[in-house]
Design a protein around this nucleic acid. Structure first.
Lengths: 256, 256
DNA sequence: GTTGCAATATCTTTCGAAACTTTTAGAATA
DNA sequence: TATTCTAAAAGTTTCGAAAGATATTGCAAC
C-alpha cells in the first residue's frame, strides 16, 4: 500500500466568515420537489455570483489584478473553478483577460457609464411596457410586495440605511426585476439584466463617494410602482427613465 | 531518477483535420510588434471560437449533450480548458448548463429567432446610423473591400457557393462588421455582435434545409453598401432592416 | 549611473485523476 | 408483468501540481 495518504482528499475549509455557509448542499436533498426554475447549481455557480458581487461592491477595485493565489485563499476553491467563473465574467464584461497576464477587473469610465445607462433605459422601458400589457394579478402583487420590502429600508435613517446597504441592493434589484417580470421577451430580459448589473457597479461607486444623500429615491420608486400597477405605460416609463438617468448623472459627477 | 517519465508531457495531437492548425503559437513570437488590438490569446481562447463555430455550423445540433469524453477527443484539449470555454458560451447563450447534468447546446425555437432578429435589427440600425455619421475614409474603404470580397463568392454558381460556404460566412460577417465599425458605442457593438452570432446559427439551419436559393442577397448587399458609403442613413438602415427581416422570415418557414 | 543580459521568482495556463452524481442495468419482490 | 431496490457504469465537478510565460532582481560592462 502506498503511503501517499493525503493525496486528494478534497476537504473544504469549514468557513471563512463570508456569511453564506452553503457548502455541502448540492442541489435538492434528493427528495424535495424539483424547486421551480431555481435549479441550484454546483459550488462553482454560486462562486460566480459571489465574485460578481465582490466586483460590483468594489471589494476588488477596477483594474485590480485578480491573482489566483489570492482568490483561492479568499474563496477556498481550486484554480480551475476560479477560472471557470472568471471566464463567465469576461463574457459579462466585468473582467478582462489578457494572454498570459491573467484576469483583471474591468475598468470604469464616464463613457462606459453613459453607454450602459442609455442601453439600460432603453431595455427596461420596453420590458416595462410589455410587462404592463401582459401582467396578471400575481405580477402586480409581486411588485407591491417587493416595493414594500424595499421601502422598509428606504424609510430608515441615513445611518441605518448605510448599515443595511447590502440588503438595499438585493431588494432594489428584486423590485426592478418584479416590474419587468411579465415581459415575454427572454432576450430582452437577459440584456436588461446584463446592463443592470453593470449599472450596479457604478451605483456602488457613487454610494462610496457620496456622504450627503438627497434621498428622493423612495418617492420615485413609489411613483413608478403606482404608475405601473395603474397600467399607465406612458407615465411609468417616463418616470423610470428619469429615475435612472438622474441617478447616473449624479454618479457622473463623482466620477469626474 | 524516477521512472515515471510520461507523467505530464503535454503533447498535442498533431492535427485532426479541423482546418486551422494553429497550435503552438502562443501569441507573438517574442519579437514581432504587439499586433494591434488582436492580442492573440491562449489555446483556450481559440477553442472558444472553434466551439462557437461548431455550434453555429450545427456540427453539434441543438440540445445535443456535450460530453467531455467526446470533446477532449475532438479538440485534443483537457477537461478544464473545455469547461472554461463552455462556461463562456453559457454566458453568450449558446450553451446551457444544468447542475450535475453537464452542458448541452442551447435549443432553437421560432420564438427565440423572432426575438433575436428584432434585437439584432435594432442594434445594427443604430450602430449603422452612428457609423455613417462618424465614418472616415478608412471606414469607407474597408466597407468597399469587404463587400467586394463577399461578392466574389455570391457571384459564383450555386454549387460553387455551397462548396465555399465556410468562406461566405466569414466574409459575410466581416462585411457587416465593417458597416458598423465606425460606431463609437462599445456596448452597442458588443450587444450587436452577440445577436449576430445567434442569428448566424439560424442562418445555417436554413442553409441546410434550403435547396433552392432565390439569391437576391448579392443585390441587397450591394444596395446596402452603396447607400452606406453614400451616407444615406434613411435608405441604408431601411434596406438593412428589410434585408435582415426577410432573411429571418424565410428561416421561420423552414423551422415550421 | 545606466544599459543589457542572465538568473530567479512569481504567476498563469493546462492537464488528468480523484471525488462525487446521475443514469443504467439487473435482481428481487409482489 | 410491473415495481422497487441495489449495484455497476457512465459522466460531471473539483482540485493541485507540472509546464510554460512574464515580471523582477542581480550582475557585469560600458
Amino acid at each position: 500500500m502506498r503511503e501517499s495518504e493525503t493525496l486528494h482528499t478534497r476537504e473544504r475549509i469549514p468557513d471563512r466568515g463570508s456569511g453564506s455557509l452553503n457548502f455541502q448542499l448540492k442541489k435538492t436533498p434528493r427528495n424535495a420537489e424539483p424547486r421551480d426554475e431555481d435549479a441550484w447549481l454546483s459550488s462553482g455557480q454560486d462562486l460566480l455570483a459571489r465574485l460578481r458581487a465582490d466586483i460590483v461592491k468594489h471589494t476588488f477595485a477596477p483594474e485590480t489584478k485578480l491573482k489566483f493565489s489570492d482568490l483561492t485563499e479568499r474563496y477556498g476553491l481550486g484554480i480551475g473553478t476560479l477560472r471557470e467563473a472568471l471566464s463567465q465574467l469576461v463574457s459579462e464584461g466585468f473582467v478582462t483577460l489578457e494572454a498570459g497576464k491573467g484576469f483583471r477587473v474591468a475598468p470604469v469610465s464616464r463613457r462606459d457609464l453613459a453607454e450602459v445607462t442609455e442601453h439600460y433605459i432603453a431595455f427596461e422601458k420596453r420590458a416595462l411596457a410589455q410587462s404592463i400589457a401582459a401582467g396578471d394579478d400575481e405580477w402586480e402583487t409581486r411588485i407591491v410586495a417587493s416595493f414594500h420590502s424595499l421601502s422598509i429600508i428606504e424609510d430608515l435613517s441615513w445611518a441605518e440605511r448605510m448599515r443595511r446597504h447590502g440588503d438595499w441592493v438585493d431588494r432594489h434589484r428584486r423590485f426592478h426585476e418584479a416590474l419587468v417580470a411579465a415581459c415575454a421577451d427572454r432576450w430582452l430580459l437577459r440584456l436588461r439584466s446584463l446592463m443592470f448589473y453593470q449599472l450596479e457597479r457604478y451605483r456602488f461607486l457613487s454610494k462610496m463617494n457620496r456622504e450627503k444623500s438627497p434621498t428622493r429615491k423612495g418617492t420615485e420608486h413609489r411613483a413608478i410602482m403606482e404608475a405601473t400597477v395603474g397600467r399607465d405605460v406612458q407615465k411609468a416609463t417616463a418616470l423610470l427613465e428619469r429615475h435612472v438617468r438622474e441617478t447616473s448623472e449624479s454618479i457622473l459627477g463623482t466620477l469626474a
